[in-house]
Simulated scan of single mutants.
Amino acid sequence: MGHSRGGLTSRVHLLSDDRARPLHWLTSPGQRGDSPMFAPVLDGLRIRRRGTGRPRSRPDRVCGDKAYSSRDNRAYARRRGIKAIIAQPDDQRLHRKRRGRACGRPPAFDKAQYRRRNAVERCVNKWKQFRAVAGAGPDRRPADGRLLTRCDKRDYIFNGTLTVTAIVIWLHDTVQEPSEVP
């Protein structure tokens, strides 16, 4: 756990598929930025193949919000052959404009693919349906004394809670509703 403006908090850096299922995540203290966690999260990706062979560790594309926009992250994705669809913040765009031709052209950006970034948000919402994950901050009690949210104090316990929740999400996604019998 780390300190942020809100007190003791932790942050989850998540990689999910297009069906809003968690693939890999890392936790960090609340004050730590998003951008330095881009490469470690991608490095931890391992998806088992149906047949024989090494697990897949390189996605076709990665979509991220403006917090992950940096030259280092884009260069890392380029080295690994991953198409990075990350929006540029206004300050980076203005800085490049101010430098003129010396700064080069803007990075490629596919708006249609960027709209699919909400899969991560949907995955987070699925996680937050579970009470133990919903409260990533300190315990708060209202005036009547009931417990609103719960937070695990240790990182390995919180990761265990996230793992159990991810398993439930994956199992729920694989269960098919019974077909109607005519």
Rank of each mutant, 00 (worst) to 15 (best):
S4E: 08
R5N: 14
G7K: 04
T9V: 03
T9F: 03
R11N: 15
R11M: 09
H13I: 05
L14D: 02
L14W: 03
L15E: 05
Q31P: 03
G33C: 06
G33R: 11
G33F: 11
P40Q: 03
P40Y: 08
G44D: 12
I47D: 03
I47M: 08
G51E: 08
G51D: 12
R54L: 14
R56H: 03
R56L: 15
R56V: 15
S57F: 05
S57N: 14
R58H: 05
R58F: 07
G64P: 02
Y68W: 02
S70Y: 06
R71D: 15
D72T: 14
N73K: 08
N73A: 06
N73C: 12
N73I: 10
A75R: 12
A77G: 07
R79K: 11
R80C: 05
K83I: 10
I85S: 06
I85M: 11
I85T: 14
D90C: 02
D90V: 13
D90I: 04
L94V: 08
H95F: 10
K97S: 11
C103E: 13
R105F: 01
P106R: 13
A108R: 13
A112V: 14
A112I: 11
R117N: 08
N118A: 07
E121A: 10
E121F: 04
R122V: 09
C123G: 05
N125R: 07
K128L: 05
R131D: 06
R131Y: 01
R131V: 04
A132G: 12
G135D: 01
G137T: 05
R140V: 00
R146I: 01
R146T: 14
D152M: 10
D155H: 06
I157L: 12
I157D: 03
I157K: 00
F158L: 10
T161A: 03
L162N: 04
A166E: 00
I167L: 15
I169G: 05
H172Q: 14
T174E: 10
T174Q: 11
V175R: 15
E177V: 09
P178D: 05
E180S: 13
V181W: 00
P182E: 05
